[in-house]
Amino acid sequence: MFEARTRLQKAVIQAVVTLMALPFLFPLFAMVRGSLAGRGFGNYVKVFETGVLFTYLRNSVIVSVFAILIVYVCTMLAAFGFSKLRIAGKELWFWALLLALTMPEAVLLTPLFVTASTFDMYNQLIAVILPIAALQIPFATLLARNFYDGIPNELLEAARVDGATIWQAFRRVVLPLTRPIAAAIVVLTLIAAWNAYLLPLLMLNDPNRQVLTLLPSFFISQYTNDQTGVLAAAVIAALPMVSAYLALQKYFERGLAAGALK
């Protein structure tokens, strides 16, 4: 691993990292500063007084938890099959799955809306959960497959010699070794599900079904444009995600590094 040894090298690296971080830190600083304009912390009290904060928070938690569960289960099974099992044409199926990475979310909004309306899922959280999970599975499978490729095949062969089935070998031998990449997948899916905006905006019209990212729009209407309320709501919506990322940062970085190397 490369390491800065002299003070000059450390100063240059610190300067470069600081310059790279500024474009991301400045909008956050402006958001927090704007949320305190005028009434100060009274703007945050105003958000709580709307009476919808905890409803939106509950819905965001539901969407995030179920999206994580779906992505985790599908990714672990798919990556294991692509990496360790002999499946006819599996490389063709794998690259077909990766083609989904090229599909932008905005292009899929219309067919997703038609599908949700056809199956009577409009205004239901499942209409947001399933598309979010489907959009995360291809990249998560790519990361997980690279991680699985680094697990020796001898472990599976030893389990088979001991009489274990493929499912038992996967569940008892391989799956416990996937904790680093699983942590990265959980964090990536959590960020995507929590920060989702277009899908909830399109699919959830019922106020009791909306999520936390839609809370700032509560202060914007035809006759109202309360920017301090918008910024305060945005800060509140971002705090759980920032806290979760800081708590899981080391696991996320370790999992990404493990998934990037064979």
Rank of each mutant, 00 (worst) to 15 (best):
Lys46Phe: 01
Pro216Thr: 02
Pro27Gln: 05
Val12Leu: 14
Ile185Ser: 01
Ala88Arg: 13
Asn146Arg: 12
Leu92Glu: 07
Ala193Gln: 02
Leu214Trp: 03
Gln249Thr: 09
Thr110Arg: 12
Glu49Met: 13
Leu261Glu: 08
Leu156Ser: 10
Arg7His: 11
Val128Ile: 12
Met31Ala: 08
Asn43Cys: 06
Ala96Cys: 09
Phe41Lys: 07
Met103Ile: 14
Ser117Leu: 09
Ala238Met: 13
Val174Lys: 01
Ser64Met: 13
Val17Glu: 04
Thr165Pro: 03
Leu199Met: 10
Glu49Gly: 11
Leu19Arg: 07
Tyr72Leu: 14
Glu253Asp: 15
Ser243Asp: 00
Asn43Ile: 03
Asn59Lys: 04
Leu155Thr: 04
Phe147Ile: 04
Val187Asn: 01
Gly40Arg: 06
Thr18Cys: 12
Ser64Trp: 03
Gln227Pro: 01
Thr50Trp: 02
Phe82His: 04
Tyr245His: 08
Leu198Val: 13
Pro104Arg: 10
Phe66Glu: 01
Gln14Leu: 13
Leu256Val: 04
Ala106Tyr: 07
Trp194Glu: 00
Ala127Gln: 05
Leu202Arg: 09
Gln249Ile: 12
Pro23Arg: 09
Val52Asn: 03
Gln222Tyr: 14
Val17Ala: 11
Leu188Asp: 04
Ala140Cys: 15
Ala79Thr: 01
Val242Met: 15
Phe219Thr: 00
Arg5Gln: 10
Arg58Thr: 07
Arg86Gln: 15
Leu99Arg: 07
Ala88His: 11
Ala158Glu: 11
Val174Glu: 06
Ile236Leu: 15
Ala134Lys: 10
Thr141Val: 15
Leu19Met: 14
Leu36Val: 09
Pro200Arg: 02
Gly51Ile: 06
Phe41Tyr: 06
Tyr56Lys: 08
Trp194Leu: 04
Gly34Arg: 00
Phe26Lys: 05
Ser243Val: 14
Thr141Arg: 05
Phe29Asn: 01
Gln222Ala: 14
Ala4Val: 12
Thr224His: 09
Thr178Leu: 06
Leu198Pro: 00
Gly255Met: 01
Asn225Gly: 15
Val73Arg: 05
Glu91Ser: 10
Leu112Arg: 00
Ile137Ala: 01
Lys262Phe: 01
Leu125Asp: 04
Leu142Gly: 02
Arg58Ser: 15
Cys74Ile: 15
Ala21Gly: 05
Phe80Arg: 00
Met241Gln: 09
Phe219Ile: 02
Pro240Asn: 15
Arg145Met: 10
Phe218Thr: 05
Val242His: 06
Leu204Arg: 02
Leu215Pro: 00
Ala159Arg: 03
Leu109Trp: 02
Leu36Thr: 09
Ala183Val: 12
Pro111His: 11
Met20Ala: 12
Ala260Val: 00
Trp194Asp: 01
Val161Glu: 06
Leu246Glu: 07
Ala234Cys: 04
Pro152Gly: 13
Asn59Leu: 09
Phe170Ser: 02
Phe218Gln: 12
Leu204Cys: 04
Leu248Ile: 08
Pro207Tyr: 08
Ala257Ser: 11
Ala88Gly: 13
Pro180Trp: 06
Lys90Pro: 05
Ile62Val: 14
Trp167Glu: 10
Lys84Val: 03
Ala15Gln: 07
Pro23Lys: 14
Ala67Asn: 02
